[in-house]
Amino acid sequence: MDLQQRVIAIIAEQAVLEVSDVTLDSTIESLGIDSLGLVEAIFAIEEAFDISIPFNANDPAQSGFDMTSVAAIVDAVQGLVAQRAA
């Protein structure tokens, strides 16, 4: 499973959906994930990839990472994983 598939699997589990129901275009909102659900998904992603995403639920913009869509999250995780490897 590549990085994108792993991220999608984590998000699908959080949304209680089939992996096939989650696409890169999906937004967190459209998947029915609330703010606490997003925090749980981010935790699971951090654990899976051994990265740290500085996400503050009060001010999502502050982290510098767009966490509103699946594509944006995949991008952010790719960047952080590359950083960790560097």
Partner: peptide
Amino acid sequence: EGLRVMSSRACRPFSRTRDG
């Protein structure tokens, strides 16, 4: 920390700039 509702800067109630 786990809840991600804490500010690392200051507590600013009711201010637009509040972050936890």
